[in-house]
């Protein structure tokens, strides 16, 4: 399999403080890799650099053989989808959120597709019209997740999305991710401390003090 990402000598500094240094990393198409490491070690920064939400101060990121910088940002971010640890839903209803991915692609909202997506994370189709203030933390996280998945991306970057979720919700999210990886060949790169999630992945990468500290197959 070809590498979907090739990262070399990647570094990121802010206000003279080095957050990430000299990261070399590759991930193959369809691979499922988890990242762990102590908090403040630069894991989220690494994912945000891959998502173009931050710009590297050194090194390079190659996505599908092209320099990350050469790809228009909107196109790139639709292919490489980043999910936040504490997502915020916008607008008033769940539908406002699920309609957004259609809106930015100038497409009409496909209600059936949105309902199927809700069902894939064990939420009833009637959720579509629910006010976002009525949702629990776990429900919000699931809505945010399917918002990223209505149009299947090539790569899914998950920033501790299951942290703080109850065991049942975690299980639902894990199944969804596994399904995406195995059936739709979506490359997954997930920051997690969850042992059950780590066991699902092909590889575990550890980041410590802004450096790659090890790889476990």
């Amino acid at each position: 399999m070809a590498n979907i990402f090739t990262v070399s000598k990647l570094g990121y500094q802010i206000d003279g403080i080095e957050i990430l240094k000299n990261i070399d990393f590759t991930i193959e198409e369809g691979e499922y890799v988890t990242i762990s490491g102590p908090s403040g070690s630069g894991k989220s920064t690494f994912l945000r650099l891959l998502a173009t939400l931050l710009t590297p101060t050194s090194g390079e990121i190659i996505f599908e053989g092209k320099q990350q910088n050469d790809i228009p940002k909107e196109t790139y971010r639709r292919e490489v989808s980043y999910c936040f640890q504490q997502p915020s839903l916008f607008g008033t209803t769940v539908q406002d959120n699920l309609a957004f991915p259609f809106e930015i692609r100038n497409q009409n909202f496909d209600e059936q597709k949105a309902e199927l997506a809700l069902e894939s994370v064990d939420l009833k189709s009637t959720f579509l019209h629910k006010n976002i203030t009525e949702l629990s933390g776990g429900e919000k996280q699931r809505v945010a997740l399917i918002r990223n998945l209505l149009f299947t991306p090539r790569v899914l970057l998950l920033d501790e999305v299951t942290t703080g979720l109850d065991a049942d919700t975690k299980e639902i999210v894990h199944k969804l991710i596994e399904n995406l990886n195995q059936k739709k060949d979506v490359t997954i790169l997930a920051i997690t401390h969850d042992e059950s999630e780590i066991s699902l992945a092909h590889r575990l990468v550890t980041i410590k003090d802004g450096r790659m500290a090890g790889v476990t197959q």
């Binding site: 939400l53 971010r77 930015i104």
Partner: peptide, 10 residues
Amino acid sequence: QGVLERLALG
């Protein structure tokens, strides 16, 4: 955060 989410969605 909402703006960041929208950007991340493309």
